[in-house]
Every structure is written in C-alpha cells, then in structure tokens.
Amino acid sequence: MSDSTHHYHGDVVNMHGGQGNQGIVHHHAPAPALTPEQALAAVRELAEALRTQLPDADREALDEGLAGLDEAAAGPERRRTLLAIAGIAATVGTLGQPLLDSVRAALELLGS
C-alpha cells in the first residue's frame, strides 16, 4: 500500500453546475495595525533569524545595519538604515523575502 496522503494549503473549490459563478468570496478579518515600534521589532526579529543563514560578509553587513537601526532615532538615518537592511535581504532572494516585506511595512508606517 502506498502513502497517498496529500496536504493542501489554501482554497480547494469544487463546482458542479450552476450559473453565473463568480468565484470565491473571502471574509478575512483585517490584520491588526502595527505601531512603528512593533514594525521595527519585527525587522529586528526577522534579521536575527536570517543572519545565521548568511555568509560572513553579509552577516557583518546585516549586523552593522541592525546596530545602525538601534542608533538611528528617527528620520533620514533610520530610513537609510532600513534601506540598507532591505538591500541585504534582497540579495539573498526568497530566503530574505520575509525581512524585505517587514522593512517595507516599517518604512510605510514610518512615513518614509
């Protein structure tokens, strides 16, 4: 006997007949709004998780970015630091995508 276990993630739709079928209506609750502090904490958390998977040079650059993020109180310095962290995340492809998304969210919340 073979193992035919399947795991589905996402929507599974079966339609039999009918007229005027328009698609799926999702009723998801909106995500809770983050504060800028929460967004920056998420950036730090994801960066820490990513750093262990980076080559030494990239890890050092990320550490410098995180140190700069702690030192940058606000304004243009914090924006530049977040952009530097985003650049590192972008260079590692899909591995860095969660961090890249988190940086984007932080920049939006900070009005940068």
Rank of each mutant, 00 (worst) to 15 (best):
M1R: 10
D3Y: 01
D3N: 05
S4F: 07
T5G: 06
H6T: 11
H7T: 09
Y8E: 14
H9F: 12
G10R: 04
G10P: 04
G10T: 03
N14M: 12
N14D: 12
M15F: 01
G17D: 09
Q19V: 13
G20A: 13
G20Q: 14
G20F: 13
Q22R: 12
G23Y: 02
I24S: 03
V25P: 00
V25D: 09
P30A: 15
A31S: 14
A31W: 02
A31R: 12
A31D: 13
P32N: 04
A33R: 14
L34S: 09
L34N: 05
P36L: 05
E37F: 04
Q38N: 05
Q38Y: 06
A39E: 11
L40F: 07
A42E: 14
V43Y: 04
V43W: 04
R44C: 01
A47C: 07
E48C: 02
E48P: 03
E48H: 08
L50Y: 02
R51T: 10
R51E: 06
Q53L: 13
L54I: 04
L54D: 03
D56H: 05
A57V: 08
L62N: 02
D63A: 11
D63P: 00
E64S: 11
E64C: 00
A67N: 13
G68Y: 06
L69W: 02
E71A: 15
A74P: 01
P76N: 12
E77F: 00
R78L: 08
R79I: 05
R79G: 07
R80W: 01
T81Q: 09
L82T: 01
L82E: 01
A84E: 07
I85M: 06
A90V: 08
P98G: 12
L100D: 06
L100S: 09
L100A: 14
V103F: 11
V103S: 10
A106C: 12
